[in-house]
C-alpha cells in the first residue's frame, strides 16, 4: 500500500466519519442531559430527505441545510414531548421516531418526486461545494505534507469543517460554560438542578434541540455533501453507529472524535477492499461493516474500560414528595 492510497483511504474516512461525528455529538448533548436517544438514525434520515428536497426545489444547498435542520428538529420535538413532557419511555419513543422517518420520507418522496422514494440528483449549487483551502494547489507537490494538506485537509465541504470544529466547541460548552454545567448536572441528578431553581424541562428541551440541530447537519451532509440527493434508507444504520461511537467514547467530545474516526476508517477500508487480504486470512467486508457493532458490544460488556452512562439517563424526571 503506497502513500497515495493511504491518503485516499484517510480522505475517504474523513468524509465518512463526518455524519457519524455530527450525529454522535448530537447524541452526546441529548444523553448528557439525561434523555436517551436511539432516534438519531431517524432524525438524520428525515434531515437528509428534507435537505435534498428543498435543495432540489430551490437549487440552494444552504436552504436545503435549513430545511434539513427543521426536519430533524421536528422529530426532536416529538421525542421531547414523549420523553420530557409526557414522561414516556425514551427508548420506545426513539424506536417510533426511526420508523416515522423511514416511512414518511418514502411516502412524501414518492408523492413529490415519484421516483420510488428517491429525490432527483442534485447538481451545481444544490450541493455543497468542496472548499479548496488557501495554497492547496501550490503546496500539492511538497512531499508528504503537500498531499496531506491538499488532499486530506483541503477539499472538503463546509460541513466537514463544521463537524470538526464542533468537537472543541462542544467540549468548551460542556465544561467551561454555565449551560454546560447545568446540562451535565441535569443528566446526573435532575433534582439538584430543580432544587437550585433551574427548570429541568427547559434544559432538556434545549439539549434535544441541539441534538436535532446537529442531526440535521448530519443528514444534510449525507444528502447534499457526501452524495447528490436522497435515496431511500440512505442513513443505512449510521445513526446506530453514531450511538455506538457515543458509548465507545464514554460520552466525551474528544473521544467521540476518535471513535467516529475509527468507525469511519473501518467503513473506508471496507469500501476500498471488499475482501481484505491480510496474507494469512481474508477479512470479508461484512466483518468490517459489523466491526463497529462488535466493538461496542465488547465495550458495553465492560471488559475493556467500562462505559458508565449519565446517571439519570433514560429516567423521566418526577419531583419526589
Amino acid at each position: 500500500m503506497d502513500f497515495a492510497t493511504v491518503i485516499q483511504i484517510l480522505d475517504s474516512a474523513v468524509r465518512l466519519m463526518t455524519p457519524l461525528l455530527l450525529a454522535c455529538l448530537a447524541g452526546l448533548y441529548s444523553e448528557r442531559s439525561g434523555v436517551f436517544d436511539i432516534g438519531l438514525e431517524g432524525k438524520m434520515l428525515m434531515a437528509a430527505f428534507t435537505a435534498a428536497s428543498v435543495a432540489y426545489a430551490t437549487g440552494s444547498a444552504w436552504l436545503g441545510l435549513i430545511a434539513g435542520v427543521a426536519g430533524s428538529m421536528a422529530l426532536s420535538l416529538v421525542h421531547g414531548l414523549s420523553s420530557i413532557t409526557f414522561r414516556g419511555n425514551q427508548l420506545i419513543s426513539g424506536v417510533a421516531i426511526n420508523f416515522l422517518a423511514s416511512g414518511l420520507t418514502v411516502l412524501l418522496g414518492q408523492k413529490i418526486f415519484g421516483l420510488g422514494g428517491r429525490t432527483p440528483s442534485l447538481t451545481g449549487a444544490g450541493r455543497f461545494p468542496e472548499i479548496q483551502l488557501p495554497f492547496a494547489a501550490a503546496l500539492r507537490d511538497v512531499p508528504v505534507i503537500g498531499p496531506i494538506y491538499a488532499e486530506l485537509i483541503s477539499g472538503h465541504t463546509i460541513l466537514v469543517y463544521v463537524a470538526f470544529l464542533m468537537v472543541p466547541l462542544t467540549w468548551w460548552v460542556l465544561f467551561r460554560t454555565r449551560f454546560g454545567l447545568r446540562l451535565r448536572a441535569v443528566g446526573e441528578n435532575p433534582a439538584s438542578v430543580d432544587t437550585a431553581g433551574v427548570s429541568v424541562t427547559r434544559l432538556r428541551y434545549a439539549a434535544i434541540a441541539i441534538c436535532g440541530l446537529l442531526c440535521g447537519l448530519a443528514g444534510a451532509y449525507l444528502a447534499t455533501g457526501l452524495s447528490a440527493g436522497f435515496v431511500k434508507e440512505m442513513t443505512a444504520g449510521r445513526g446506530f453507529i453514531a450511538l455506538a461511537a457515543l458509548i465507545f467514547a464514554k460520552w466525551r467530545p474528544w473521544s467521540a472524535l476518535g471513535a467516529t474516526f475509527l468507525f469511519g476508517l473501518l467503513e473506508a477500508i471496507a469500501n476500498r477492499y471488499p475482501n481484505l487480504d491480510l496474507g494469512i486470512v481474508t477479512i470479508p467486508s461484512m466483518f468490517m461493516n459489523a466491526l463497529p457493532y462488535i466493538l461496542t458490544v465488547i465495550i458495553l460488556a465492560g471488559f475493556v474500560g467500562r462505559a458508565i452512562p449519565p446517571r439519570a439517563g433514560g429516567e423521566p424526571y418526577v419531583k419526589e414528595r
Partner: peptide, 30 residues
C-alpha cells in the same frame, strides 16, 4: 434555603461546582 433528607448533589461534580449550580455569575464558569 433547604437541606433535603436525600441530598440534591451531583455525585461526580466537585463541591465548588455543586455550590454554584443554578447561581452562576454570567455565562462562563471560571
Amino acid at each position: 434555603g433547604m437541606v433535603f433528607q436525600h441530598f440534591k448533589l451531583v455525585q461526580n461534580f466537585t463541591v465548588l461546582e455543586n455550590v454554584i449550580l443554578g447561581v452562576e455569575d454570567g455565562r462562563l464558569l471560571r
